[in-house]
């Protein structure tokens, strides 16, 4: 039911783990649907230089987390914001229909991490002003 790309990312996921002192972190999902994703980003000069994830979930949840962290590395914050769940699924050659909504949350987790990065940045700027 999964594409080879999904199975590859599930078997050998990229960027698993946490970033110490991340510039942004975001969590999405809920236990009821069985998927929880936590995304960490490191940002330099408004560019995402590192991303890591921790995911509780099915094969699709783990694979989308992995590929999304790969997609976001090297992108500017603005480019990263434009990554959609659909693009993440496409990068994996598609997901089974029932997985498109419940397990395809990696871009949402990423956007939350970016929100968090911008909140921190704003707080810092206000702090120094």
């Amino acid at each position: 039911m999964y594409t080879e790309a999904v199975m590859e990312h599930f078997t050998n996921p990229k960027n698993v783990g946490e970033i110490e002192n991340p510039d942004g972190e975001g969590q999405v999902g809920n236990p009821t649907c069985g998927d929880i994703m936590k995304m960490y980003i490191k940002v330099e000069d408004d560019q995402v230089v590192d991303a890591k994830f921790k995911t509780f979930g099915c094969g699709a949840a783990i694979a989308t987390s992995s590929v999304a962290t790969e997609m976001v590395k090297g992108k500017t914050i603005e480019e990263a914001r434009n990554i959609t769940n659909r693009q993440v699924a496409e990068a994996l050659g598609g997901l089974p229909g029932n997985k498109m909504h419940c397990s395809n949350l990696a871009a949402d987790a990423l956007h939350k991490a970016i929100d968090n990065y911008e909140e921190r940045k704003k707080a810092r700027e206000e702090g120094t002003a």
Binding site: Y2, C58, G59, A61
Partner: peptide, 10 residues
């Protein structure tokens, strides 16, 4: 505890 069934099955 802590992990999800489908990923165990895969």
């Amino acid at each position: 505890v802590g992990i999800e069934g489908e990923s165990i099955l895969l």
